[in-house]
């Protein structure tokens, strides 16, 4: 039987679907029997979802740069394109 401490150490593996077989079974058993750990894993999932949502939300500044081009937006895209057209492809291949 895993200890609560060991469950916490493996919690990200569980969330990311990286556990399998015996490891996964031991986790499920512990979570079934231990309310504290089951709450903890729920908290970590919520935390992860909030972090994901937070990245999906377009940044305030970014939105204004496109929908409301003010003086702080001296046609960045055009400048980029002009630069790109001027240059020879000399960049190191990624």
């Amino acid at each position: 039987m895993l200890t609560c401490k060991e469950v916490v150490e493996r919690a990200s593996g569980l969330i990311d679907g990286e556990l399998s077989g015996w490891e996964l079974w031991k986790m499920r058993l512990h979570l079934f029997l231990c309310r504290g750990c089951s709450h903890f894993v729920g908290q970590l999932r919520q935390t992860n979802q909030l972090a994901a949502d937070c990245g999906a939300r377009p940044d305030e500044q970014e939105r204004s740069a496109f929908d409301d081009p003010g003086p702080q937006h001296p046609d960045f895209l055009s400048r980029l394109h002009t630069k790109a057209a001027d240059r020879r492809p000399d960049e190191r291949k990624a």
């Binding site: 200890t3 609560c4 401490k5 060991e6 309310r35 504290g36 750990c37 709450h39 903890f40 729920g42 908290q43 919520q46 909030l50």
Partner: peptide, 13 residues
């Protein structure tokens, strides 16, 4: 390796 204080259930955030 056991919780000293059990984590609580979070409401939907």
């Amino acid at each position: 390796g056991r919780w000293k204080a059990m984590p609580e259930l979070w409401e939907e955030r």
